[in-house]
Design a protein around this nucleic acid. Structure first.
Length: 489
RNA sequence: GGCCCGUUGGUCAAGCGGUUAAGACUCCGCCCUUUCACGGCGGCAUCACGAGUUCGAUUCUCGUACGGGUCACCA
């Protein structure tokens, strides 16, 4: 089957959760396809039954769907080159391997495990790189037939050139050349007749018409062997795009054991899907312009393999948070309120609160929805705060002038009619006090905010908070503040 | 250990022989007639090291150091 369009594939093994690095590979494969109006294919590589994890396939489906990386061909929807589950493709590989044997690029090997193990031990003991010694490379047709007839178990190995070099091109790393003598006669077909991953991968990619192979750079050193295989078959070599890993720190790859590595973990921590996708796109890839905030659709246009970097990238939660914040700010107030409400209600149960107003205040200062409960917990109940909070050097406030401000504020604010308890009214009264005291705004407003919130950081200023809390609550808390200040003296 | 790859601020990174070495996150200052945040402005801070090629190297070559990957009848 031949295709004109770009065809990329994401070929995960169902062995557990979806890691950020995996997801990034899927994303790049998707973007590369979509950028070129091509086809994005999902292939499940489930041939390792020992590592198979129940439910892992669903995680792959769900993650890709949730992130919008919709595949055009795959196990569930089929396509022209199915099946798309590797275990269902097992029949074909041996025939392909036999073709190679005929062409002289592969051979039967009857060495048993004992001999191989012994060989390896000897090689290691003498400091040589472990490598198959070519014992069965030159068996005569008669010898082969004899063993085959006798039912001796065998594998099929790739016959590597003895000398010369092999060069392959990678879009990220450029041309890479290796000595053929360093290449091992790798096994293509195992004793059980099943293909090894390296072989199945090449055959699958070719038979599925994959034009661009995007994968982690742990496969970089296998690429020469793949190239030789493609050449042996006379197949077109796909464009390689090897991506460096996502790291936890400068020496460790991100791993699920560390808690925050999987996509699901990040979502559970409150990050938005779009923000995660945007951020991981940026991890190891740089856009041409200066903008960094892109929707998936925009990424499809913007993406270019030339922007992929060679060196590993360290996952930075701080940057993810910032990007998440940028996405939160993009919501309309209504959207934000809807999403934020459950979080607000975790700690703020008061029914008389204007949550719309609260949401409006919260939105510009929220990076993560899960931060909200802690930000609004003072509304229901005034925390037992330290009175030193009244002292702020920049505001030039201290215990004395704070007390004075609160004492002046108390009757002034009490004079506001309950039904007219609005920002404007409160603002007007507060500034009356400021004018009367002949001080800077902060001298009055800092103590107000402190007294009614008892917190260092709040979702708004004193006047905003007073409006939210309501007259009764505001007055009580100002009285409470005055008491605290009195007791301190 | 052999082979392969990588190395620009704390992090992500632009850069393709001549630049005041972009930008983003973080941090710090200032402004936005109240903190925090948002927004605006400004600032700190980077070419791993040593040779070589060149009039000139972050950029090219070679070494060194450090880091990563790979050397399975796993994928």
């Amino acid at each position: 089957m031949s295709f004109d369009k770009v065809r990329t594939r994401f070929a995960p093994s169902p062995t557990g959760y979806m890691h950020v690095g995996n997801l990034r590979t899927a994303l790049y494969a998707y973007l590369l396809a979509k950028k070129n109006n091509g086809t994005f294919i999902l292939r499940i590589e489930d041939t390792d039954q020992e590592r198979y994890v129940e439910g892992a396939v669903d995680i792959i489906y769900n993650t890709l769907r949730k992130t919008g990386l919709i595949w055009d061909e795959g196990p569930d929807i089929g396509g022209p080159v199915g099946p798309y589950v590797q275990s269902e493709r097992m029949g074909m590989f041996k025939d392909y391997a036999l073709q190679l044997v005929e062409k002289g690029h592969a051979y039967f090997c009857f060495c048993d495990k004992e001999r191989l193990t012994e060989l390896k031990e000897i090689q290691q003991a003498s400091g040589i790189a472990p490598k198959y010694d070519g014992h069965c490379r030159n068996l005569t047709p008669e010898e082969i037939k004899e063993k085959l007839d006798a039912g001796v178990p065998y594998v099929i190995r790739q016959k590597m050139p003895k000398d010369g070099t092999t060069t392959f091109h990678d879009e990220v790393f450029g041309d890479i050349t290796v000595e053929n003598s360093t290449l091992d006669d790798q096994i293509l077909i195992k004793t059980d007749g099943m293909p090894t991953y390296n072989f199945a991968n090449v055959v699958d990619d070719h038979t599925m018409g994959i034009t661009h192979v995007i994968r982690g750079n742990e496969y970089l050193s296998s690429a020469p062997k793949y190239n030789l295989l493609y050449e042996a078959f006379g197949w077109d070599i796909p464009t390689y795009v090897h991506c460096s890993p996502v790291m936890k720190d400068s020496t460790h790859k991100l791993s699920k054991r560390n808690g925050d590595a999987s996509f699901e973990d990040l979502i559970a921590k409150g990050y938005l899907t779009e923000a995660v996708i945007n951020y991981i796109a940026l991890l190891g890839w740089a856009p041409k312009g200066e903008n960094e905030i892109f929707t998936l659709e925009e990424l499809c246009q913007e993406f270019d393999v030339s922007g992929i970097s060679k060196s590993p990238a360290i996952f930075d939660t701080q940057k993810l948070r910032a990007i998440n914040g940028a996405y939160i700010r993009k919501f309309s107030v209504e959207e934000f309120e809807e999403k934020a409400l459950p979080y607000i209600r975790q700690t703020c149960k008061r029914e008389d609160i204007d949550t719309h107003l609260l949401a409006k205040m919260l939105q510009p200062r929220t990076e993560l929805f899960t931060d909200i409960p802690e930000q609004v917990d003072f509304i229901d109940e005034l925390p037992d705060y330290d009175i030193q909070m009244y002292c702020h050097k920049k505001m030039k406030t201290n215990l004395e002038n704070s007390k004075e401000a609160l004492e002046k504020l108390l009757p002034t604010l009490e004079s506001i009619d309950e039904n007219n308890w609005t920002v404007d009214a409160i603002h007007e009264k507060c500034f009356e006090v400021i004018a009367q005291m002949e001080v800077k705004n902060g001298i009055v407003l800092w103590p107000l905010r402190t007294a009614i919130s008892g917190k260092q950081f709040t979702p708004g200023g004193g006047i905003d908070l007073a409006e939210i809390l309501g007259k009764k609550c505001t007055i009580e808390r100002i009285k409470d503040g005055i008491n605290r200040l009195n007791n301190a003296q």
